[in-house]
Design a protein around this nucleic acid. Structure first.
Lengths: 337, 337
DNA sequence: GTGAAAGCGCTAACAA
DNA sequence: TTGTTAGCGCTTTCAC
């Protein structure tokens, strides 16, 4: 690989001149400029990123932490992040933690080594709090995406989870249901809690008491949801919930499949809703009514915020809440033609 | 951030000594070593990656090019790549090209700038050939994953596509089908071509002629496949294929849904197979028979090859073919209890 | 055993 | 308008 010196020699100018034309930040006479440009072309030169980074004390790359990229929730988010970063000349480092705190620690190390200029943390866990806090205290740019961490002084981009729960439950109510179950996620997840609060609010407005068996928590995954639904299916028909809201579309698939396995018709015997609006929700054989979470936008906005923070002096932590949207398909009835 | 100088001063030693303990490559007296370690802890020091990279002329990061991370085929591959890289102290740069040649060009620029030490290219397109070739000619480490590019001098990791097509068709034959359609992917894709060759081989073995309407090509996506299936459904029952093999599980979903929309029972009226074995293939309401592509392993092996190439002197291009597996579920009948 | 210093490739302050 | 040079933080040769 050729260096700036090679270019300088080849063009018969000083390295400073080459640097000036490279960065276009000083006047350089047309002839010299042309010679430099020609040399660059001829030698197929590209300035070394490490050297630049060392001088400039920045890497122009941001880190994106996801717990598991093969969870279909994240790819869109990652894409939003990458598209936005890319637009501003930043690269993105993907870091899968697989929910191992050790991996989070390695990410923090990359931050201290200057490998990344800022970090987007999706689905932050309570266990990460201390580490993230210490990063923030050292002034490292950080934005949380999708999941909040109460009390952490960092930018946050999330979807309107309370509203999502509210709108899901209201929709069920509107369709005539009274016994509506809300399958929440792992206990303690703020996302899940917020959605459940929205649900409870709607139920309260409707004057309905929510017995504990309507809000079983557990994983929002397929199997765990499938099993919870089996439990409901086995209840006496006049006690069994006639509507089930699951925290994720994949979970809702489990609910749908359990209902089918027990001979329950959807939506006649049981109405089902999910959250996310994954591509599979739109399949004709599924047609899942769901609350769309703007995943791409979550990633895009988080990146936007991070980049702003990178270029501006310190400012207060911001909190952006993205609207969610009710997508009515077939699993609750009431579908538009 | 503290630098090696700060540590040296703080510990009362030279920067060289600090470097020695950091890299553990020279004898350092226990006392000094301890003092250095203490200073590192106290000042929360981490060596600057750019400076190291500049010296060492390596970034310890690899680039991973995918056309679209939100295509459910890629996340597992990306994860395999990331896990393997991570194990060897490498980071991974994700690059979504969205099939824009411009993005590929930017990736190449990153390579020339030394931002990445090597590149894994998934689903390489014919249009990328020249760029990739020029990278190889400059000796840049490159491995192709999933899709081959005939004649490109680079390592390649792919799944056994011919065998996959063969095993899919043979399975259909075994289930008693004779009119078996193979919905191939976009014309010219080597992956698709190989699979189709396997299919043709099986048909030939069975002494069956394959009329052109059985091998319609198109996108392997949901909608395109849905529509192709509608075409088959509208054929007279005694001409219509009784079995359909699609190039992807998502495509197979389209086939399944089209069949359902036309009142065709699966597998009685039409048997359906996919390729990939995505998570959705296992849903109880789907139970798609499919050819499993080892996506994670594709990413992992590609990374392994790349890392070997990074550490060893130049060697001949290698070609690894990963076995595929027939996963029998319900859409072709013959499911195990 | 340990340290001084050169140098990786680049930018920018300063000099001419 | 252009060039010389110091220095970013680190590793490593060479000398002691």
């Amino acid at each position: 690989m050729s260096t700036i010196k090679d270019i300088a020699k080849h063009a018969g100018v000083s390295v400073a001149t080459v640097s000036y034309v490279l960065n276009n930040n000083r006047y350089v006479s047309p002839e010299k400029k042309e010679r430099v440009l020609a040399a660059i072309r001829e030698l197929n030169y590209a300035p070394n990123a490490a050297a630049r980074g060392l001088r400039a004390r920045e890497s122009r790359t941001i880190g994106l932490i996801v717990s598991d990229i093969s969870n279909p929730f994240y790819p869109d988010l990652a894409k939003g992040c990458e598209d936005e970063a890319q637009k501003h000349g930043y690269a993105v480092h993907m870091i899968n933690t697989n929910d191992q705190p050790e991996r989070m620690r390695q990410a923090a190390a990359q931050a201290r080594e200057g490998k990344i200029d800022g970090l987007i943390v999706t689905s932050a866990l309570e266990a990460d709090r201390e580490l993230l806090q210490s990063l923030r205290e050292r002034g490292f740019p950080l934005v949380l995406a999708h999941r909040r961490l109460e009390g952490l002084d960092a930018d946050l981009v999330e979807s309107d989870n309370f509203e999502g729960g509210l709108m899901a439950a209201r929709h069920m109510l509107r369709m005539g249901h009274r016994r509506i179950a809300f399958m929440s996620g792992v206990a303690g997840s703020p996302t899940s809690k917020l959605r459940e609060e929205g649900y409870r609010q709607a139920m309260k407005e409707a004057g309905i008491d929510v017995p504990p068996e309507w809000t079983l928590s557990g994983e929002a995954k397929y199997t765990a949801s499938y099993e919870r639904m089996l439990g409901y299916a086995d209840m006496p028909p006049d006690e069994r919930p006639t509507a089930v809201i699951n925290m994720s579309d994949v979970g809702a698939m489990g609910v749908l499949d359990a209902a089918a396995d027990r001979g329950l018709r959807v939506p006649e015997d049981v109405a089902v809703m999910g959250f996310d609006d994954l591509f599979l929700a739109a399949f004709r054989s599924v047609r899942l009514t769901t609350v769309r979470i703007p995943r791409y936008e979550l990633g895009r906005r988080a990146t936007e915020l991070l980049l702003e923070r990178l270029s501006e002096a310190s400012r207060d932590a911001r909190h952006v809440v993205l609207p969610v949207e009710l997508i009515v398909r077939g699993t609750c009835g009431g579908e538009q033609a």
